[in-house]
């Protein structure tokens, strides 16, 4: 049994403690907004927040989440109001297929928490998620747009 908080809700989950957080979110909790892309923490599709930090959930055992606060893409908007990163993504029409974008948005939201007005160089360093559609120019513009709307 593993106890963790996801999107403000406490859960006790009967699962092998080695199971990656990603699969507990998707399969035990039904939160499928967080995506599987590689399973080796290389692509970032599975990015969530753990105590406010961006974490690649596909290679993070759920047992390490004991007592921690997990936020997923489904929990980013508060009371139906989009987070400013989500709003920027809508304003600038950032996603193409959208599959990587939940992880991208979570990574960007964590970046803006730590660095409210990131420079291009800081964005380059922090945002290493893979997007195969190639939304990178729009992602960069979206980050600046969201930062300006803080």
């Amino acid at each position: 049994m593993v106890s963790l908080s996801v999107n403000g809700k406490a859960h006790d989950i009967d699962v092998d403690p080695d199971t990656p957080l990603l699969w507990v979110l998707r399969e035990q909790l039904g939160l499928t907004g967080t995506k599987y892309g590689c399973g080796i923490a290389a692509c970032g599709s599975c990015t969530v927040h753990v105590d406010g930090e961006a974490v690649r959930s596909c290679a993070m055992p759920v047992s390490a989440m004991e007592g921690k606060k997990v936020v997923t893409i489904e929990g980013l908007a508060v009371d139906g109001v989009l987070h400013r990163v989500q709003q920027a993504w809508v304003d600038l029409d950032v996603p193409q297929c959208g599959y990587c974008q939940a992880g991208m948005i979570m990574a960007v939201a964590a970046l803006l928490n730590a660095t409210p007005k990131p420079t291009d160089a800081q964005i380059d360093e922090a945002i290493t998620n893979v997007c195969r559609c190639g939304t990178y120019p729009r992602v960069r513009a979206g980050i600046h747009h969201a930062a300006a709307n803080a």
């Binding site: 399969e27 039904g30 939160l31 499928t32 907004g33 967080t34 995506k35 599987y36 997923t72 893409i73 489904e74 980013l76 908007a77 989009l82 989500q86 993504w89 809508v90 029409d93 950032v94 996603p95 959208g98 599959y99 974008q101 939940a102 948005i105």
Partner: peptide
Amino acid sequence: LKRLDTADKVVGKMVYGIDVKLPGMLS
């Protein structure tokens, strides 16, 4: 014009094949 399919993609609601859930489903 802006895309028609963006809203669900930014909140994790868009359903891709990998997200399909059916009652009694196994994997």
